[in-house]
């Protein structure tokens, strides 16, 4: 069949559409939305940071950016991204979780950690002990947590990144005790988890258990979460106990290339994460009790952070991959140590 197109009639319409397109191209860029999938205690940090970044980005490019947040246990969040939650960026509790997104989801390259400074970790934190005012159980160090009659609150390492840091910090302390070795560390951590009455799925849930529900004598917590609890959730009701040894937690961030590419948000997602490293970003992190990387900001906020001897996962556990396989994989040490209901 012959099809006749009325080209002459269509030309004005085409010209009109082209004109409109050019006009649009010359106007404000199209608004964009990012989804930041993060771990449990970063809600307040990113609420603050997102506003600041949106203002910065609008000023720089004229583009409106809206950042949506999703929070939960770090491991659980990583699983959600692998299963289809369309995160433009992830800001999780540990590198292993982003490795999983790269490996199992294929959503970003394996070398993601080398794409931003400090192993893609713009701020650090550590693990401390939060006790009730007056420290009624006399908690001074990790060893006290395994004593009879002490009730300990910590989340579940199977779902929470923070809980893994907690667990490894306790293990590292036990290794550094006189005569300490893998067997004594295991025995100590086993006794410690026998004192845990409730395993929350994430760090924020554990804080709720300890602070709001009034359960337990000590909360093993992110330093930022413990400082937040003292300053904002329960003024005058809690004290921080700095253990003799703790672990240097380096929560990493990354652009999820495939999703950001699909959404056309790669540039703004990259800028979003880079902004965490700026003085403004570092100030915001410090105000929310994360230890900043930038020396000038770190010096300014030095007084708010307890002085601790910090070990790293790499030096004590041989990196996250090994730590996961030994301690947190199905059937590994944590499953052997902690059996619900027993």
């Amino acid at each position: 069949m012959r099809t006749r197109l009325t080209l002459t009639g269509s030309l004005p319409l085409v010209a009109l559409m082209a004109g409109a397109g050019v006009a649009m191209a010359q106007g404000s860029p199209k608004p964009v939305t990012l989804l930041n999938v993060s771990y449990d205690p970063t809600r307040e940090l990113y609420e603050d940071f997102n506003q600041q970044f949106a203002t910065y980005w609008k000023g720089k490019t004229g583009q409106e950016v809206t950042i949506r947040q999703s929070h939960g246990g770090s491991g659980k969040q990583a699983r959600s991204v692998i299963d289809g939650l369309e995160a433009d960026v992830v800001t999780l509790a540990l590198a292993y979780d982003i490795d999983q997104i790269a490996e199992k989801g294929g959503l970003l390259p394996a070398n993601w950690q080398s794409r931003l400074p400090n192993n893609s970790s713009p701020y650090t934190s550590t693990i401390v002990l939060l006790v009730r005012k007056g420290n009624p159980k006399g908690i001074k160090d990790w060893g006290d947590l395994a004593k009879s009659g002490v009730s300990v609150v910590t989340p579940n390492p199977k779902t929470s990144g923070g809980a893994r840091w907690n667990y490894l910090a306790a293990w590292a302390w036990a290794l550094r005790q006189p005569g300490g070795n893998e067997a004594t560390a295991r025995e100590f951590v086993t006794r410690l988890y026998k004192n845990v009455p409730v395993l929350d799925a994430g760090a924020r849930g554990a804080t709720t258990t300890f602070v709001e529900r009034g359960i337990g004598d000590v909360l093993i917590a992110w330093e930022n979460e413990a400082l937040l609890a003292i300053k904002e959730l329960g003024q005058g009701k809690f004290e921080i106990v700095a253990p003799s040894v703790s672990i240097l937690a380096e929560p990493p961030v990354a652009v999820v290339d495939k999703i950001a590419g699909k959404h056309g948000t790669k540039a703004v997602a990259q800028a979003y994460l880079e902004y965490l490293y700026t003085e403004t970003g570092q100030e915001i992190a410090a105000r929310h009790f994360y230890r900043p990387r930038l020396a000038s900001v770190a010096a300014k906020y030095d007084a708010q952070f307890p002085k601790l001897r910090l070990v790293t996962v790499d030096e004590v556990f041989g990196g996250w991959r090994k730590a996961h396989a030994t301690h947190f994989a199905d059937g590994a040490l944590f499953d052997q140590i902690y059996q619900p209901g027993r």
Binding site: S151, P197, V198, G205, T209, G214, I215, G216
Partner: peptide, 17 residues
């Protein structure tokens, strides 16, 4: 009191799960 609080919290967590 702790036992009751723990049981209540476990119930909350079970409901969440």
């Amino acid at each position: 009191d702790q036992q009751v609080r723990i049981l209540q919290r476990l119930r909350e967590l079970a409901a969440d799960s």
